[in-house]
Nucleic acid binder design. Structure first.
Lengths: 196, 196
DNA sequence: ACCTTAATGCGACATAGTTGCGTCTGATCC
DNA sequence: GGATCAGACGCAACTATGTCGCATTAAGGT
């Protein structure tokens, strides 16, 4: 549900949606976040404000849609030949992208205009899919792997927590530290109990 | 900074602040969240809207203030005689309060209307203080303890991540599972490296 | 090609947010 | 205790944003 469900997926509706999304991106790039208002976006997109209000309901929900679209990873995680290297690289990149000022803004937008939580859930699914890809590749190499849930709990969640609640504590080696701890703990019994 | 910095802490300013906060709480309790608008709050508080706009700037920042005030724990964590019991009980209570619909709403409010991140940071400080109290008490009993950062990373952060991004995955035993994993891992070498 | 239905545009209206200015109150200094 | 100063508040006019009914247009199915 990154775009709103479109009962009429083709033609004008699709053009309007793309035009509005483009207007949001352009306006933000040119005049910054403060200039983002529904009337301004509508004018830029060549659309009446009421169209936006009807389709998205709210500036926040529109921004949430655009944010989720931007947070979608374009490529599968890079293969570095080992689980440790793959996870570390991916986590570092994740932390860098999400922890940047614009990344934080997108995450906040995604959380913000999201009455039912589906957009935020989509972000989590994106991360879980990437992790899943890394893990299954490692499994193909006959490496010992943790569950997806363990990685979400002990790598993704701590990074996101600091991004949202403690932005001052984002060190460059934090991602590496978390990944190392999770993989080292693979030998201890408690981490093999699986999720939940 | 739970209330805005008040250049004039006494008398009328304090009365206005308390009156506005009370109006927010009452209106939300009586008519629900949708009824919360600045004019409505101002009318209920016996204040003109412009006062609220000048002091808080925005409905979101006002709600963020009220939310942080509500998220502050009233009492120190209960003493159950052991680190495991103390942490488990506290985490379960934390998850229950924060994961409830109203708790999620407060967290979202606190994150939302928070330009500089200080309100969200305050929430994290509240949790860290509670954990700190539990740990230092356990230290007094000569128990082996993890660092505050380890608990924040592997207990608090995963719970908060699910609350915000995956509200469907909140099981009753999730808090217990996380606490158990952290305390069991105390014997493994990787968890004694400390934070960062 | 026609028909049905949903999406859009338009404009009037309601609500929310902004600003300048005068008044009042709390704090500080004598 | 009284005078002075600065900041907070109320008021009111104004602007911007959000809502709604109705006519029009276009997409999908027959």
């Amino acid at each position: 549900m990154s775009p709103k469900p479109m009962a009429r997926p083709g033609g004008r509706s699709a053009r309007v949606q793309e035009s509005v999304h483009a207007a949001v991106r352009e306006l933000e790039a040119e005049q910054g976040r403060a200039a983002l208002s529904v009337p301004a976006i509508a004018a830029r997109a060549g659309v009446t404000p009421s169209t936006i209000y009807r389709r998205w309901g709210d500036l926040r929900e529109l921004l949430s849609d655009v944010a989720v679209e931007r947070l979608r990873p374009e490529e599968p995680p890079v293969d570095h030949g080992s689980l440790h290297a793959d996870l570390t690289t991916w986590a570092q990149q994740f932390l860098e992208e999400m922890g940047s000022p614009s990344g934080r803004a997108y995450i906040r937008d995604a959380l913000l205009g999201d009455p039912d939580g589906s957009n935020a859930g989509q972000c989590s699914v994106y991360a879980a899919d990437q992790v899943e890809a890394i893990l299954s590749r490692a499994l193909g190499r006959a490496e010992a792997i943790p569950t997806v849930e363990v990685v979400m709990d002990h790598v993704v969640a701590p990074m996101m927590y600091r991004i949202l609640f403690r932005p001052g504590l984002l060190g460059a080696d934090y991602a590496e530290h978390l990944v190392h701890a999770v993989l080292t703990a693979l030998d201890s019994p408690s981490s093999r109990r699986g999720p939940q």
